[in-house]
Nucleic acid binder design. Structure first.
Lengths: 212, 212
DNA sequence: CTCTGAACATACAGACTGTATGGGACAGAA
DNA sequence: TTCTGTCCCATACAGTCTGTATGTTCAGAG
């Protein structure tokens, strides 16, 4: 009878996972700082202290590695937002639903300030994967939450009925551009306040118009 | 005394301009259809019926060629919009200024439907040039008109006072994403109507609030 | 006519990606 | 224990692409 049940991974499996994780970490750091094209596979494997053989064993090619890294970034962002959103929902469940939606978008904007996310997902992603594949990934991870929030807001009558799919994309693009604008501004504080104000005003346009 | 004044270009100069134009045209077509990375310099020069020597004579490197192509696309778009805008301004100068602004943005959205513009300027541009250089180019050609219209709208009190720079960027991103959404939709007609409606509502949020 | 420089074409060197090959470690069968 | 197959990874190699260096042609100045 073995000392450990079958479900416990072997030490060898740990090493494999460590190698793969090191590759992902190195790739993520380099893609975020230098971009996809300017990062050679040799740079990645030397940073991960392995050889290119390990890379091409774990990933089909360089684009596959990038896809995995981007998916990781997107998933982390989605989890962060969901956890943050549920915490707010239970904390301030008595507050006005409209101001809840407003503050939700503001914190969404703050979350997008992550440099890795900006560079890998927002900048490099569309050009490396092509816009259709990029869109599928973002749809899978990011837009589920945003689309859910929006359709719920429509269902509750907080915003006027309108097609949710284009609304989701356009609000996502709006927040993305706002975060990039803030990131490359001199005065971050001021840029954050300005972009937040503009975003808030645009959101206002979606609000239910008829006071009936 | 020469039969032609000095200002008349020689036939050789015509050939030079033709070569450069052929390179730009081939590069534009290929960059738009296959993207920057998937287009080799050999593809470009064979389509232009010259050799790589001509390319590297006229342009510093491949990125320089791309920059010139993108600048051409952006300039054409800006000229198209300006010409279109001035025509509308003189034709309907008696109409409501707010609805003028609204229809202006809708026709801006329609202009962005150009596939070359979408792929080269909106998709490939940021990743190839880097977001800062890309932003400088778009600032130079595209955002002058948009920013002008917006600051004028603020000055005339049609929209509430708010920082114009972030507003310009975010509206530009909004329209860009809307045009891309339309382009990759199954039902173009419906997508156009939906995106236009959402854009119109967001614009509504910027409108002057106090009825004083 | 000679000479210079622009406008290309050609040839070459370097870098990078992807693949084919080889070896070492580990698990399971005999 | 020994043998064997498979997984994991390192190394070597081939193909492609970019950028540069060199060569060639030709228009125009002196």
């Amino acid at each position: 009878m073995p000392a450990q049940p079958k479900s416990v991974p072997s030490r060898r499996a740990d090493h494999v996972a460590d190698t793969r994780g090191a590759l992902l970490g190195a790739a993520r750091s380099l893609f975020a700082s230098r971009g996809y094209a300017a990062t050679g596979t040799e740079d990645i494997v030397s940073a991960a202290r392995v050889t290119r053989g390990a890379l091409y064993h774990h990933f089909r090619d360089k684009a596959d590695l990038f896809t995995t890294v981007m998916e990781q970034c997107a998933r982390e962002m989605a989890e962060r937002l969901i956890e943050q959103e549920t915490r707010r929902a239970e904390a301030e469940h008595q507050e006005d639903t409209w101001s809840l939606l407003r503050t939700g978008f503001q914190s969404f904007l703050d979350a997008c300030a992550d440099p890795d996310f900006q560079r890998i997902v927002l900048i490099e992603g569309p050009a490396v994967l092509g816009h259709s594949a990029w869109d599928a990934l973002v749809e899978k991870h990011g837009y589920v939450l945003l689309g859910e929030v929006l359709s719920q807001a429509v269902a509750e009558g907080r915003v006027d009925p309108m097609p949710v799919r284009p609304l989701t994309r356009m609000l996502g693009a709006l927040i993305s551009e706002a975060s990039l604008y803030i990131a490359r501004s001199e005065d971050q504080e001021r840029a954050r306040a300005d972009a937040g104000a503009v975003l808030d005003r645009m959101l206002l346009g979606l609000r239910r118009q008829d006071a009936g």
